[in-house]
Simulated scan of single mutants.
Amino acid sequence: MDRITAMNAFVRVVEAGTFTKAADTLDVPNATVTRLIQGLEEDLKVRLLHRTTRSVTVTPEGASYYERVVRLLADLADIESSTRMSQGKPVGKVRVEAPAAIGSMVIVPALADFYRQYPDVEVELGVSNRRTDVVAEGVDCAIRAGEVVEQQMVTRRIGLFRFTTCTSPAFLKACRTPATPEELRSCPTVGMVSARTGRAMDFRFSNGDGTSVDITLEHRLVVNDTNSYVAAGVAGLGFIQAPSYAVGDALKAGTLVSLLEEWKTPDIAVNVLYAPNRYLSAKVRVFIDWTIALFDRHESLRLS
């Protein structure tokens, strides 16, 4: 039995909570993970996990073993990482999760630059508006826009953005231009579904004296994807309030025009997060550093 492979499988089972999820994150058959854990228990002559048809729980001996194995695997990763970094060659797969809009509009268009710098690193990018369980799903790092609810994760702020209220020039000519946020109530609008609540988000504003206004609107169209949302604005279906980084190109091209600019929207933080009990390997570190630099170059996302 490969002891290191078995230890890694054991850690993944504990963190994922099931053999099936652990097998998925390791990209091996479920039977392989079962065989590795059984071999580990036989070799150690101790039960590490309690198994039922529905769940897996850790025995007291397993919990103690887990804490030590995590540190040992981190030390081994440190050794490998230091060696590879000394050669300037981070290698391997990095599993990343990002919001759909940031993934498709910011990260993917710039990935050619990352591969030029790190040709031996493979990026597996999951783009979704759902909240991924980073530990259970074996994700190396996740990019989050807005509030971070995972309190136990290591979190690093990498960017900020605001929302821009806009529509197409043709629509603006045909519709009375609202002078205040309240006047949007009598205008056709398009709503964006919140991944957290499953409902259309309010339009949010804040003027120069700090007054905040949240406007709940009756939309003529509601979508759950930022690309479709921006397309609806460009198509003249109504007023939209979209992330600044998502509409920057359309504003420059003139296919969208902004309004209510004196009413700013609150800053939305973008963070990268990862599990605290996992060593930040060279491949993950260079991806995070590259992402930070990418956001810093982006006029609608940089922190300063």
Rank of each mutant, 00 (worst) to 15 (best):
V33F: 06
L172S: 14
S168V: 07
A136S: 12
R95Y: 01
V139C: 04
Y115H: 15
V154H: 02
R185S: 13
K89M: 10
L217R: 02
T5L: 15
Q151G: 09
E61R: 05
A31W: 02
R71I: 13
D78T: 15
S244W: 06
S186T: 14
S186K: 08
L44G: 07
R35S: 12
Q117V: 00
R220A: 13
V270M: 03
V257P: 01
A269V: 13
H50C: 04
Q152N: 11
K173P: 00
A269G: 06
R157P: 06
H219V: 00
N271P: 00
A100N: 02
Q241K: 01
D78C: 05
G236C: 05
V284W: 01
T211P: 00
V247A: 04
A98V: 08
L184V: 10
L49M: 10
V284H: 01
P181Q: 04
N271Y: 11
T226R: 01
I4G: 01
V106M: 07
I4P: 05
R204N: 11
V28P: 01
T53S: 14
V14I: 13
M105S: 08
P109Y: 11
W263E: 07
Y115R: 12
V154P: 01
T216S: 15
T5P: 02
R285T: 09
D78V: 09
K21M: 07
S55F: 08
W290D: 03
A9N: 14
E41L: 04
V56Y: 09
V257R: 14
P90N: 10
S281N: 11
E262V: 14
A16T: 03
L237Y: 05
A275N: 07
T180Q: 10
I268L: 05
A101P: 02
T165W: 02
S128C: 02
E15K: 14
V230R: 10
F205R: 03
P276E: 07
S281P: 03
A63D: 15
L49V: 04
G238Y: 05
S281A: 14
D2N: 15
D27C: 08
R47P: 06
A74D: 15
L259I: 15
L237T: 01
L76I: 15
T57Y: 06
M7C: 14
E61C: 04
M85Q: 13
T197M: 07
A235Y: 03
N207T: 10
T20A: 12
N227L: 13
A174N: 13
M85T: 05
M7F: 14
